[in-house]
């Protein structure tokens, strides 16, 4: 199996990693604080998409059992969903805190550009 085909059957992973990399690039490279927060969220979304993709099996259903059910159908992996839920809450808290710092810095300096903030401090 050549490299292109190998990547094609893993398209979901590729999309997730691409999102991760885009987010990382914006987070580290963009000078605007709001864009940085967006980059942070895109990066985290990439990781969550990756995790959810790991849990999927072909033709599987959402992992909610029916009462009295003795049937053993194929369900998506619930562990990764639980991990993603925790991850989302962590991402939300980080975002809320980052945004409040951003508001505070903007109210003091009138700018969102990290380079100008650094210059203002000196």
């Amino acid at each position: 199996m050549g490299m292109p085909l190998a990547l094609f059957v893993r398209l979901n992973y590729m999309a997730a990693i691409t999102l991760f990399l885009i987010g990382l690039h914006v987070l580290l490279g963009h000078p605007n604080l709001i864009k940085k927060v967006m980059g942070m969220n895109i990066m985290e979304t990439g990781v969550f998409l990756f995790l959810v993709s790991i849990g999927y099996a072909r033709h599987s259903a959402a992992p909610i059992m029916s009462p009295g059910g003795a049937e053993s159908g194929l369900y998506a992996n619930p562990l990764v969903s639980a991990i993603v839920l925790t991850g989302i809450v962590i991402a939300v808290s980080t975002t809320a805190y980052t945004l409040s710092l951003t508001i505070k810095l903007y109210e003091h300096c009138g700018t969102l550009d990290v380079n100008r903030l650094e210059r203002l401090r000196r």
Partner: peptide
Amino acid sequence: FATLAEAPPFGWQEAPTRNVITDRYLAPG
């Protein structure tokens, strides 16, 4: 990307993550 080319394929029903742990989590009823 070099790493991903080798990863277990997407949607694989016998992926390594399907083990005794998920079996117990997915107990019926």
